[in-house]
Design a protein around this nucleic acid. Sequence first.
DNA 1: TGGTCAGTTAAGGGTCTGGTTATGTAGCCT
DNA 2: AGGCTACATAACCAGACCCTTAACTGACCA
Lengths: 312, 312
Amino acid sequence: MTLGQLSAFVLVARLGSVTAAARALGVSEPAVSQALAALRQHHDDRLLVRTREGMTLTAGGRRLLPIASQMVSLGADAEAAVREAKGVAEELRVVVASTIAEFVANPLLEAFGGRSGSPVEFSAGLAKTAEMPVLVGNRLADAALGPRIDDADLDSMPIFRGTLVAVGSPRRHRGGSPSAWPWLVDPSGTDEKSDAGVLLRKLAVPDERVRVFANQTAAWSAAASGLGVSIAVEHLVAPQLRRRELVVVPTRVTPMPVYWHVTTATRDRCSVVASSLRHFLGTPVAMQIMRSPGSGVPPSRFRPPVFVTIWS
Amino acid sequence: MTLGQLSAFVLVARLGSVTAAARALGVSEPAVSQALAALRQHHDDRLLVRTREGMTLTAGGRRLLPIASQMVSLGADAEAAVREAKGVAEELRVVVASTIAEFVANPLLEAFGGRSGSPVEFSAGLAKTAEMPVLVGNRLADAALGPRIDDADLDSMPIFRGTLVAVGSPRRHRGGSPSAWPWLVDPSGTDEKSDAGVLLRKLAVPDERVRVFANQTAAWSAAASGLGVSIAVEHLVAPQLRRRELVVVPTRVTPMPVYWHVTTATRDRCSVVASSLRHFLGTPVAMQIMRSPGSGVPPSRFRPPVFVTIWS
DNA sequence: TGGTCAGTTAAGGGTCTGGTTATGTAGCCT
DNA sequence: AGGCTACATAACCAGACCCTTAACTGACCA
């Protein structure tokens, strides 16, 4: 029974899927499956069984989960505690929705690092909305940037209000139902609970009409060439609109207000640096950065899906 | 950072010595030293430094200790939780003072196993008095049988009152100060806080007058042949006294009352089976067994110094 | 019936863990 | 200075961990 195995178990239990857990951990899916197998053998209990609702807990798994979760959490605490005693750079692990990652996460976090009194080391990773509460709740991440998250153990604070619009080529006017248009989106389009996902669902766009691009810039450029319609937070796409590469395409549900949130553990179990980040994100400086960010750093600047495992 | 390393760290910190921790874990001393080295490297902090009072904590170590201790404890909980859900034999890890181990521990635990409703699996190990609170407090053991232990987190209950006497050959009458006699003792004679250790100290017996035997039976038999004086709980040595192989030798401090105690974690953090053992030890059945136990099972029936590590 | 999706199992390999014995080294005592 | 004690380190080794890719199984669906 190792901490790595426990952490895989917790993630599978919480996300209800081996695949999801593997992606959240940034490893292949058999890796998680094997960690689980080792834990199963050790305890001589299946712990999690496949059902139609996903992986569900056995009686033994149900008992193990809260304990395992606490151990994983304590593992993070242990790192932080010693590190803090040495007065050495704090580590801040942030998960970010892909949309935010592309434009504002880097300048935002760098600004925070520069203004924070003590040195801070970042590691950021992309995550789907559904993963965020699990990762933050289990201390696999210190903070999440993305949509609002409702969870008793977590504290979600709005940090920005933007407007989501549909954009398309100025030379190609679309008619008919938006659900029949080709939609060109970044990976968050496949995330049901992301802003883009919500928008697509509101318009009842079927999956086969959606083409996923590596990032928003790529999707916009494809839209500009007339391949279809894309989704954008208005002020982020402003340069392209100003240059008339793209125009706003009105729909039944756009412009749609969106809110970015920062989510951390509740105050009492939140690391100092995380709560300091939360505070920073409420300041005008942060607001200013979100309003006029740099132009599209590709998400590959971030670590693959999520940070490294915490313990070697 | 593995649970094994953390558990070594906790034990060294609490016992103040690598050697003691190694003995408590039943491994060689470099094994513990290396676990510590790995943890030090991982955290880039010495954690524990040598001082004249033993191994003392650095600032980082002081922060790590409570967290590590809790993780180790949770590790034990995790095992127990899954096991319990399966309705499978509970495991009860007991540490025993060597004096008790030799005569009463086995019949006592076997009787408990037979009367306990659910099946129980034992693993017992010898421990010095100083190790007991550390082992039980950190959930490396569920219960300890030995002298009274004063510790805020532990619950020590008297289970037996006996009388400690000095015994020697009937053919060899000793005169002069007892501190000049040759004393033949079992390993607990080297444990300052054991009953035998206390007795020897009260009589101001210097170390060079003490010869340690593998167990009490061996020490008594040596005393019977006139090599010196031994120590015994009166009713345990009754057969030898009845056969006139040994006679009681009066001293300034004997007969001396001794109390055996069972020590567990305080009720709220104590496993069900441990608290059930504590209850059993207060019953007349247990009392009866302690009063007339079997005749000297050698301690080798127990696992070497202490049980196996809990996690593979 | 065949295809797809999700989880499991198999095989292989690099790294870490955790144990041993033997040897070094720092501090303390006589 | 010499010796003792106790911790640290070296060298070695078996086994566990943890990752990968590839192939297998079972459920579900057209």
